[in-house]
Amino acid sequence: MSRAIVFSEVPQLVAELVTTAARVADEVHVVALGQPSAASLDGVASVALLTADAARPESFVAAIAARVAAIDADVVLVGATVTGWEVAARVATVLGVGLVSEATALRRVPGAGWQAERVVYAGGAVQTESWSGLAVVTVTAGFAPAARDVGGAAPVQVVPVEVDARVRVVSRSVRPHEGVDLAHATRVVCVGMGLGSVDDLAIARGLAEALDAEVACTRPVAEDREWLPTERYIGISGVSVRPDLYLGLGVSGQVQHTVGIREAAVVVGINTDPNAPLFGVCDYAVVGDLHEIAPMLTEAIRAVRSGGAVESAAS
């Protein structure tokens, strides 16, 4: 009889982790903070509801580790959020076990323990890791569909616990957030640091409008320049997209970024540098100034979409 323990501070991730856990273990146990709702999910054997006075999820590490030991789990699955990364690493350390961060595959090898795959070198390679005994594995959102709420009634045990209150939250603020769903966009116009100024975003927006595309960006455009909200940046630490068309304007194409566009059907790069790394991983490499090319491209697309024919390259 094998047992998996699932933890995430995000209810949606709990439901997804339950699905993943049920694929590799006979019994799925959930450790929850204030969300007994997991008890009604398909495949959940028990819920331990850890309770303490107004505490951040990171302060429950010792209690979560104790729960893993009490259940005698074979694997611990944690949702890969910033909070989850910390909880997973610290729980693994308390238990003296391995951690696989952001697994892209997880399986039991009959008679030989466990195997997981993960991306390393920011997407440059895939690494298989093997182990026997207990390990903690983090899994990103979207790895598996959420377990269905079947109105089940798994036993819920309320466990009052001591928490580590040494880190105090002083305040929280929410950064600009539009709720855009880039991951499912069918077309994406992505701007990089090659964009001259924040006003030039109008160029990308014009092109995006002509194409019915979403505007996306690279990490520094969002995090350093703050020209677009962080939910719009693509890459290993941002969003992965799978559009029919990705158009990168002034994007150099470092692997940390391009790992997020691997599932795109057609990739176009527009860059002044003929040696831009993006040109090595794209379908159409246009060497040129985005400020010149993109507005012309917008016009050409508008013309075609309003019924005109594509002008021949030779004319």
Partner: peptide, 23 residues
């Protein structure tokens, strides 16, 4: 990936070449 390079000519020619590729 196809890695089709569009580097020759002026901007208008490059856009035309890209448009026919996208079409």
């Amino acid at each position: 990936r196809k890695r089709i390079r569009i580097a020759d000519g002026d901007a208008r020619e490059k856009v035309a070449a890209l448009m026919s590729g996208l079409a």
